[in-house]
Design a protein around this nucleic acid. Structure first.
Lengths: 141, 141
DNA sequence: TATTGTTATACTCTATAACTATA
DNA sequence: TATAGTTATAGAGTATAACAATA
């Protein structure tokens, strides 16, 4: 009987869908003992060996204050190595174990993405992806 | 020079866009001293006077353990009134001040939604909204 | 037994401020 | 002065467990 006055608003829908899909991804990554943010960091380092923390943070929208302990955890697990590039910044790279885990985690993430897309009516998939890309471009600044 | 391997994935894009738009909404609601979750609760109660906490939580995806303190805060500010409907549940309604604030906050939320839509290329808006509705329907269970 | 609401607690993501060290 | 990174702290949303009271 109750009426939901917010359902029709895309911003509200994004919020709900995001929370839902992130919970699903977190569950999927649990077996690797990786949070979503940690998995995305591993994948990005794997594709950009030598990237610095600040570059990584800029790409993923993670402020440096949060990046520091995140990288520290991955380094403590011997998944990521840090080598000074100058006196104040580090080049990040994956260890053997890190590269292996990044690949497995990325596969899980891609499977998760496929499951998500599969739930969208085919006719609206293209517009959905285009709109998200446009919004993501907006926030790249 | 660095390459972002995640940009093209809609699930990842949803996560980033959600965080961004929610931060914008939170900023917009700051002048009313309302969090996004509190504002949405006010609006839903306004449209469904007498709704119980459990019904409200089911609609908005808020578990009862988190609904309790949220409602308590709104009641303490004299925005929401609780009347027992039976020995264990309460019917929620807005006070005069609550109704006034709900209306103002809803207007701000709608303005925020308009700004979001305006950033989407017109050609992909329909698909975007349709896809989100389909996903929201999925998670209604 | 199931439902409603509460309390306590914890996790994740996000953010700001203050700081050190280096460019 | 500006940049890279660190530490401490806080806010917001989400979640589970344990519980009391009621249906």
């Amino acid at each position: 009987m109750p009426v939901d006055p917010l359902r029709r608003y895309p911003g509200y829908a994004i919020r709900r869908v995001s929370a839902w899909t992130m919970a699903g991804l977190a569950e999927r990554l649990e077996e690797f003992e990786l949070r979503p943010s940690e998995a995305s960091v591993l994948v990005v380092i794997g594709e950009n060996s030598g990237i610095t923390q600040s570059e990584l943070g800029k790409m993923l929208g993670i402020v440096s204050a949060n990046m520091a302990p995140l990288i520290a955890r991955l380094e403590a697990r011997d998944l990521v190595a840090r080598k000074p590039v100058d006196g104040r910044s580090f080049g990040l790279s994956l260890t053997r174990a890190g590269a292996r885990l990044a690949e497995t985690a990325f596969a899980a993430m891609q499977e998760h993405e496929r499951d998500l897309i599969a739930r969208i009516p085919p006719a609206s998939r293209a517009g959905f992806v285009e709109a998200l890309q446009a919004l993501l471009d907006e926030l790249q600044d």
